[in-house]
Design a protein around this nucleic acid. Structure first.
Lengths: 341, 1357
DNA sequence: GGGATAGTTAGTGATATAAGTAATAGAGAATAG
DNA sequence: GTATTCTCTACCGACAATATCACTAACTATGGG
């Protein structure tokens, strides 16, 4: 028995949410799932537990379920109209619909620890967790921060990543995908792409606008060979293009806090060569790094040009700096309140 | 839950869209057809025409309020003596008094360019870059609007040229002038100043190479005079005293009587004993000029000279005549130090007084040399003070007779005049000297001492920085010489291009001074702007730039002063006074002349250049631990580091200060880094005589703290030039003339507490390190990590705010220490509503309780019959018992006399009763006095210095009650006599309580829980801020803060607060119903005004034909004639590139649409504040007249205990005077007049006749134009109609009368309100039309008779 | 010497930045449609 | 013609985002006739 997939006529009645968009065309989904070839990772889909964050109207959820029939498929949807929509469509299906807020950390601790509704299996970090998959749609314009936070959770090995290397299929605005996937020496290279490089192996799977591809590295594109669909295949049809990425955590071993500080500060002046930019790390930074960096050609590079390996190297030097600044004090207090009754 | 996108993303993009909206950029290049009138920003944007044509009338020029006595609303509009000055003049221009909005758009665009050019011109001339200056002149000449004033710029140039080339022959100079004006600048005519320059040049040339041509040439120049010889001679910035001496006494081409009165006495005394022969001869010729030439300054000086004795010839005989004109002083600083004459005389005077032997000893030892004894700023150990300085206050107090006191003060004043000059001009050098001194001392003790001693370190930095600065200046100079034309920028790299921008400015000031200023500024800014150990870069670069500019300005004044008076050597104190007076008049005019301010971007650039050099050289020794070897490592690190921090994803440039230095700063006495120019003054401030002359002697300040708004300046200047705000000056001058001194006893206590480093009252303790909680493991739940981060942040912020708090206290204390025993004054100016503030930051009587406790009046007055009572009441007030009957307050103090005694005698070791007061430091000060009084047999004889306060009870509401004639409200705020004071807050609390009880009975759960928790304190802040228009949300937070101790859960407390706020608002509205009606009226009026359109707005400025930018701000005139312009407009900020980073600063010349929301929210409080400011200034002026010492903190008036009764009468009378006329009605009439021909966009029913007519006009028009019409088109035609109607030609007027426009149709409509559709009405058939702007009817006034408050003793108490 | 074209640059506008939305949430105005 | 989206949030003293890239207009330089 397969689960009915909501059609465009049904879903177009719903009003939209701050740029939240999703692919609705099942044929495109077929292509995407072919490309993903999930059974490679999940050899036994019957044991798979899927957590679907912001499923929207559940098109993807239904297709996924029909394809793989996982052991558990839980959707977390807070927005009332969408929740109602899901309830109505999937009333009698095995898909679980939970009205909780995916933004709230406590949702997960409740779900997993207290209520024990959704309990994934902890697996060692030598392979991708083959019984737990996360799927999310964070295409809303204001929700980019959430993606970045999830990324840093990979670095912290907390949140869902305490269960091991959990794959995530993540819908996001294509601009966000471009930022995340930027390679060194490209215009879009930024801190978050270094983070992505440091913690994950990420691939572009699908994108809603062929024009957007020019923002990505051509070599990578060749390798990824993403599914390209048109704006008509998503809802709402107008608005900014979206992209689907596949995100696998990887092994890493460096001092995350210091690395975070170093990358953050260097990427501010990302066009300034290391021969002058190091002072922005703290009092006398340039002098120190000049004395420590042995490969002088590195000094000619700009932060924008650095690979994560190079950032890790700089971080190592940074942590060995006797006069390094206090990285905890790296913020300003904008809101001093005065005046009391 | 996912948040809506707008919060983060869209918000920023909108901000950005706005700042770069096409408007801003287009303004740089005005379309060639925009031909506005000449309206440079320093020119009155306000009707120049009206002020010249309309006779001064109405309230502004009348010295009493008799014109106000019209209490009848219906009558007053037809009254011929209208309350505002401009009413008479409206027949000339169709809107004569407001050129600021619309015309500004077309003219301000160029103003911006001109301003930049000016400032550059001035800079180039000062740096002797004559070629570049000339090319700037050529650019300026091309600006058509500027032609009228061009000659002034040319004069500036010519003068610099003459200064540069003193040996340029007379004839050649004449040739140059002729050539310039006849070929280069054809349309320009010389003026009298030009002639003055030529005369000055001739005289100087003659001095070095005597010329036969001199006399004929000079005579010729005088004959060429445009406005008379006197006009030429009045250019004292050009002609020196010795020039005048030559002209009068040697060449005898002019007579004494033709001289400006300020210098006449000096020249008289310089004259050979036989009186000038040709006196009468010339007098006739110049008589007719006399009337018009009498400038305000001269009048003022005449007055001040009138009371002064002219020096006898005897004493002046040996004053050398300024015969030789020699080479100009290149270095004006040298001239400063010369001024030490007469100090022996002072010493003699002082020694002649009845002094103790010790005092005499002190005075004999004391060097009366202003340069060596500016202030007690030396970082000596405690207790040393007495050796090096004199406690003038003690000596003054110990003098037995009034006569001797007078003599003492007079001598002190003479001394202080010099010290003030040094203070304002030489302070940077003084700082430098001190550093050097400390360095040398430390050096003698060894290297480690240098590192330990802050000043020694600063000296090292200074020395290392100086060559860099000099080198940079050389770069700038050579670059400027290479490239005289500013547009010639080819082959320059980025650094050089920038250099070309700031170079001319940087070369103006002594490099050494710039180094000192930079260092001082950066130290001062430590821990500001929320940065943990450092400051914001943007703030730093601008502060340094501003400080440099300020230094430049005072140097300028000083330089020209010493040039003009350079040949006058002073021998006798009498003569000196004469010169001092002439100088002060001179200074006023000089300061006024320096109209040009440096552009903000230049300030930033200069600041960044200097700071980056300091970063480069300033090093500190640091210790660290090698993370690998764990060994202690020493090293040298830059003291400052430039970096960035993020806030909400926005970058913020910061300058970090090294921890090591911070620690050192915390332990130091920071006097070395106080901005010396803005300390309290040692002599009476220069009286305010016009809008930019008053306050400090050499440092320029303006009457109004304008928010970079040319509009505000324009109105202010017009009012000032018109003489409309003299009464504002009167009040302000009284405030400035009140002499103070530091309360030594309180100071000693504060000092002790401070040195202990413990937290005491609101002084936080001196912490070395902050203690942070242990970090949770990395893989903890994100929520736990977040909580920890938040905790760290909170602790760090607390730490940082404590430190900056302590730093602030340090400043206050050090300033107080420097002024121990001194007589000091606070120069004041006004915020844009007219409220007065001291100019000197950090330490003044508006500061916190400690600052106030540290200040007492210099003059003492016997308590007399009522003084003791008031002193006791004062103490009770300070303890918070200000809502008791007066006799009960007296009783309170009397019941605590033992506590008073203990507090005074053992302030720290005793019971510390005083620390339990609401305002402990002031209470302590009062205890000290009371304790002394109690020792007296006759308390009435006690001489008191303690200011006693009289505070209005909810002053804002008092004004509202008076405005609305609201009996109930008036009763609540003590306008009505009562035998005990009303407590508004308690009353509101009771009302809320009652409401809650009712609600609770109905079963309201919230009410049941809250009903017994309502205290005065809970509602106090909300009642207070309600006057300022606090919103529901804001009030909820306030109440939540009060409620938070009661409820554990923050969320819960907030929920209750929300509920409670509704009731509090309800209660306030009920109690002050009338006040709220006025508030609403003000708000509605402001809204309508700021949504209105001026007709003569350039119709092209309508980007979208139906959506104009609203440009009209709310403007009104206070009862004292001060024009208030609400400066709330949309901000436009730009990124400016500097050496360190780009900074984001607002563009002061941009003309932006008004911010209607803020205009609306601001009017009620601002209007009320403009009234309480008027009340204060009126009271101040009157108190001054009656010989009282007076000070104020907005609605708290201070005077001596003995004078409180008098002051109480004065302030009541002034309040009554103020409110005798209906101020709301007056405001409405002013609005009606000012915004007469404005229109607004509104909707009317489409079905009406009128709408049909409008549609028809539009159709016709549309046919003619061949496109659909817009509102802009309609505005254009209405504007045309108005122009025709106001035309001089009869035919035109006839055409105009026949013309029908969509607006003119409304002329016959009486009831606009009935016609107009309210927003969102259920009618779908409204059509957008232009309606004449109408303000809502004012709420009816009640029966309260304001005069009854004469008898209300608790009105102010 | 004049005009065209390629190259350069100054200036402006757009966008990204970090990463729990600062403590907060409901009204009122602006804008899109 | 209404509905959605955005913007505040008590007045004054008071005090502020920045780096980089794309694009364009204006200007310079060049090389060929």
């Amino acid at each position: 028995m397969s689960i009915p997939i909501p059609g465009i006529k049904d879903i177009s009645k719903l009003k939209f949410f701050y740029g939240f968009k999703y692919l609705w065309n099942p044929t495109v989904y077929d292509k995407i799932f072919d490309k993903l070839d999930l059974t490679r990772t999940y050899k036994n889909p019957k044991e798979l537990k899927v957590l679907d964050l912001y499923p929207g109207v559940g098109v993807q959820s239904a297709i996924f379920y029909n394809k793989y029939s996982p052991k558990q498929y839980s959707m977390i949807e807070k927005r009332s109209s969408l929740y109602k929509f899901l309830k109505a469509n999937l009333e009698d299906s095995p898909l679980q619909i939970l009205k909780k807020d995916p933004y709230d950390w406590s949702t997960y601790s409740n779900l997993i620890n207290e209520e024990r509704i959704f309990v994934p299996e902890v697996q060692p970090p030598d392979h991708i967790n083959d019984t737990f998959l996360t799927v999310a749609n964070v295409t809303g314009e204001g929700s980019e921060g959430l993606i970045m936070q999830w990324l840093s959770c990979i670095g912290n090995k907390n949140w869902l990543y305490r269960f091991g290397k959990v794959k995530m299929l993540l819908w996001m605005p294509s601009t966000t995908a471009r930022k995340l996937l930027a390679r060194p020496s490209t215009h879009s290279r930024s801190k978050c792409s270094v983070v992505r490089e440091g913690f994950t192996d990420t691939k572009l799977v699908a994108i809603s606008d062929a024009d957007e591809l020019k923002g990505f590295d051509s070599q990578c594109l060749e390798e990824w060979d993403p599914v390209i669909f048109s704006a008509a295949d998503m809802w709402p049809t107008k608005g900014k293009p979206i992209a689907l990425v596949e995100m696998d955590p990887i092994d890493f071993d460096f001092d995350v806090e210091n690395w975070d500080y170093v990358t953050r500060h260097l990427m501010i002046l990302k066009g300034t060569p290391l021969s002058t930019v190091m002072d922005s790390l703290g009092h006398g930074g340039q002098q120190y790094f000049n004395s420590r960096i042995t490969d002088k050609s590195l000094l000619k590079k700009r932060p924008l040009d650095l690979t994560n390996e190079e950032f890790i190297y700089l971080t190592k030097l940074f942590t060995e700096w006797p006069f390094k600044p206090d990285i905890l004090m790296d913020f300003v207090d904008m809101y001093q309140t005065e005046h009391s009754g | 839950m996912l948040r809506p996108a707008y919060k983060s993303l869209v918000k920023t993009s909108l901000l950005q869209r706005r700042l770069i909206s096409s408007k801003g950029s287009k303004l740089y290049k005005p379309s060639p057809d925009s031909t506005g009138t000449i309206l440079m920003s320093e020119e009155p944007l306000v009707a120049a025409s009206s002020s010249t044509t309309s006779p001064p009338s109405g309230i502004i020029d009348t010295n009493d309020f008799s014109l106000f006595n019209n209490n009848n609303r219906k009558n007053s509009s037809s009254n011929s003596s209208t309350p505002y000055q401009w009413k008479n003049s409206s027949d000339l221009d169709f809107d004569p008094f407001n050129k600021s909005h619309a015309s500004a758009i077309t003219t301000m665009t160029r103003t911006r360019d001109v301003m930049q050019l000016w400032s550059l011109l001035e800079a180039c001339l000062q740096s002797n870059l004559m070629k570049r200056a000339f090319s700037i002149l050529e650019s300026l000449y091309l600006v058509p609007e500027h032609k009228q004033r061009f000659i002034e710029d040319y004069n500036m140039y010519l003068n610099a040229f003459s200064r540069n080339e003193p040996n340029f022959p007379i004839l050649k100079m004449n040739e140059k002038l002729t050539n310039d004006l006849e070929t280069n600048f054809k349309d320009i005519n010389y003026n009298d100043k030009t002639l003055a320059i030529m005369i000055h040049h001739s005289l100087r040339f003659h001095a070095s190479a005597s010329s036969m041509l001199l006399k004929p040439t000079i005579s010729a120049y005088f004959k060429m005079s445009v406005n008379g010889i006197r006009e030429i001679l009045s250019n004292l910035d050009i002609l020196t005293i010795s020039d005048l001496n030559l002209l009068v006494n040697d060449l005898r081409v002019i007579s004494l009587s033709q001289l400006p009165s300020s210098v006449k006495p000096i020249l008289e005394s310089l004259a050979p004993s036989s009186s000038p022969v040709n006196n009468n001869q010339n007098e006739d010729g110049s008589k007719n000029l006399e009337a018009e030439n009498n400038s305000k300054n001269e009048k003022n000086l005449d007055a001040s000279l009138g009371s002064m004795k002219t020096p006898s010839l005897e004493s002046l005989r040996d004053v050398p005549l300024g015969g030789s004109t020699g080479v100009l002083p290149k270095d004006a600083e040298k001239l400063i130090a010369v001024d030490t004459i007469g100090m022996r005389v002072i010493r003699h005077t002082l020694l002649g007084l009845s002094l103790t032997p010790e005092q005499k000893e002190q005075i004999s030892r004391f060097k009366f040399d202003a340069n060596e004894n500016v202030l007690n700023m030396k970082p000596t150990k405690d207790g040393d003070d007495s050796d090096t300085s004199i406690n003038f206050f003690e000596i003054y107090n110990s003098l037995p007779s009034l006569k001797e006191k007078k003599a003492f003060e007079s001598a002190l004043n003479t001394f202080n005049q010099d010290r003030q000059k040094v203070l304002e001009n030489r302070a940077t050098e003084a700082a430098r000297e001190r550093w050097k001194h400390d360095f040398e001392e430390a050096k003698a003790r060894g290297d480690i001492s240098i590192e330990k001693n802050l000043n020694a370190k600063l000296w090292k930095w200074y020395n290392n920085m100086l060559p860099l600065v000099q080198e940079e200046i050389n770069h700038c100079k050579s670059l400027s010489l290479e490239r005289p034309s500013p547009s010639d920028k080819k082959h320059l790299n980025k650094v050089e291009t920038n250099r070309l921008d700031y170079g001319p400015y940087l070369t103006l000031i002594d490099p050494g001074k710039m180094c000192v200023i930079t260092i001082l500024e950066l130290l001062k800014l430590n821990s500001t702007g929320g940065v943990i150990e450092g400051m914001r870069t943007a703030r730093a670069v601008i502060s340094v730039g501003k400080a440099i500019e300020m230094e430049f300005r005072s140097e300028q004044v000083l330089k020209s002063e010493s040039q003009t008076f350079r040949d006058v050597n002073k021998k006798s104190p009498e003569f000196k006074k004469l010169v001092q007076n002439a100088k002060s008049v001179f200074r006023s005019s000089q300061i006024e002349q320096s109209k040009i301010l440096w552009p903000q971007n230049i300030r930033a650039k200069i600041g960044s250049v200097l700071i980056s050099m300091l970063i480069h050289v300033a090093k500190v020794f640091v210790q660290g631990v090698d993370p690998i070897t764990k060994a202690k490592v020493h090293g040298e690190a830059p003291a400052f580091a430039h970096g960035y921090q993020y806030h909400n994803g926005s970058k913020l440039g910061v300058l970090k200060i090294h921890k090591t230095l911070i620690r050192q700063l915390n332990g130091e006495r920071l006097i070395a880094s106080v901005q010396p120019q803005l300390l309290p003054m040692l002599v009476e401030p220069k009286p305010w005589v016009n809008w930019r002359s008053g306050g400090y002697h050499y440092t320029q300040s303006t009457l109004l703290r304008t928010k970079d708004s040319p509009e505000q300046v324009a109105y202010l200047k017009a009012a000032s030039d018109n003489g409309d705000i003299d009464r504002v000056y009167d009040g302000l001058n009284v405030l400035g003339d009140t002499p103070w001194t530091v309360n030594r006893k309180v100071f000693d206590v504060v000092s002790q507490v401070w040195n202990r480093g413990e937290s005491f009252l609101d002084i936080p303790s001196a912490q070395e390190e902050m203690v942070l909680p242990l970090a949770p493991p990395r893989n903890s739940d994100p929520s736990i990590l977040r909580a920890w981060k938040l905790q760290v942040k909170t602790i760090a912020n607390k730490f940082s705010s404590d430190r900056s708090n302590r730093c602030d206290t340090n400043y206050k204390l050090e300033i107080a220490r420097a002024f121990l025993g001194e007589k000091l004054y606070f120069p004041h100016n006004l915020d844009f509503r007219g409220r007065a503030y001291p100019l000197s930051p950090h330490f003044n009587h508006l500061g916190n309780d400690m600052s106030r406790g540290l200040l007492i009046f210099w003059h003492g007055k016997k308590l007399g019959p009522s003084g003791l009572k008031w002193l006791k009441i004062h103490l009770s007030n300070l303890f918070g018992f200000d809502k008791l009957r007066l006799e009960d307050r007296v009783a309170f103090t009397e019941s605590h006399l033992n506590d008073v005694k203990d507090s005074a005698e053992n302030p720290l070791s005793g019971e510390r009763w005083w620390t339990t007061a609401d305002k402990p430091w002031q209470a302590l000060a009062t205890c000290f006095e009371l304790n002394e009084v109690m020792k007296m047999d006759n308390p009435e004889e006690f001489i008191s210095h303690q200011p006693v306060h009289q505070d209005g009870t909810c002053n804002g509401l008092q004004h509202y009650a008076a405005l609305g004639g609201d009996v109930e409200g008036a009763t609540q705020v003590n306008l009505v006599p009562n035998d005990k004071p009303q407590d508004v807050y308690a009353h509101v609390a009771r009302l809320v309580q009652k409401r809650l009880e009712i609600a609770a009975e109905k079963g309201d759960e919230n009410a049941k829980i809250l009903k017994d928790k309502i205290t005065r304190k809970v509602v106090k802040q909300t009642v207070m801020t309600n006057v300022y228009g606090v919103t529901y949300v804001g009030a909820t937070f306030q109440i939540a803060k009060q409620l938070s101790p009661i409820f554990d859960d923050r969320k819960e407390s907030l929920d209750y607060s929300k509920y409670l706020t509704k009731h509090v608002f309800g209660a306030i509205r009920e109690l002050f119903h009338s006040a709220h009606l006025i508030q609403d009226w003000l708000g509605e009026s402001a809204k309508r005004i700021s949504k209105s359109i001026r007709l003569d707005v350039d119709e092209k400025s309508f980007k979208n034909g139906n959506k104009p930018d609203f440009m009209s701000s709310v403007i009104w005139t206070t009862p004292l004639g001060l024009p208030i312009v609400q400066p709330y407009r949309e901000e436009s900020k730009k990124q400016v590139e500097t050496n360190l980073q780009t900074v984001f600063i607002s563009d002061p010349f941009a003309v932006n649409p008004v911010n209607a929301r803020r205009q609306k929210a601001g009017l009620p409080p601002n209007f009320i504040h403009s009234l309480d400011a008027s009340h204060m200034l009126l009271s101040a002026a009157e108190c001054g007249k009656q010989g009282l010492d007076f000070a104020s903190v907005h609605d708290s008036y201070w005077t001596h205990a003995s004078d409180v009764d008098t002051m109480n009468v004065v302030l009541r009378e002034q309040f009554i005077k103020l409110h005798e006329i209906d101020l709301v009605l007056r405001l409405k009439e002013e609005f009606d007049q000012r915004y007469k021909n404005y229109v607004k966009i509104g909707k009317i029913k489409r079905s009406t006749d009128l709408a049909q007519k409008i549609v028809k006009i539009r159709k016709d028009l549309s046919k003619k134009l061949g496109r659909s019409t817009t509102l802009a088109d309609e505005i254009y035609f209405e504007k045309k109609r108005q122009e025709l109607l106001n035309s001089q030609l009869v035919e035109d007027r006839k055409v105009g009368e026949k013309m029908v426009t969509t607006v003119s149709l409304f002329e016959d409509v009486n009831d606009l309100d009935a016609l107009e559709l309210e927003n969102g009405g259920d009618e779908h058939s409204g059509s957008s039309v232009l309606l004449p702007l109408r303000l809502p009817e004012i709420p009816p006034k009640g029966d309260f008779d304001v005069t009854v408050l004469r008898g209300s003793q608790y009105f102010f108490s």
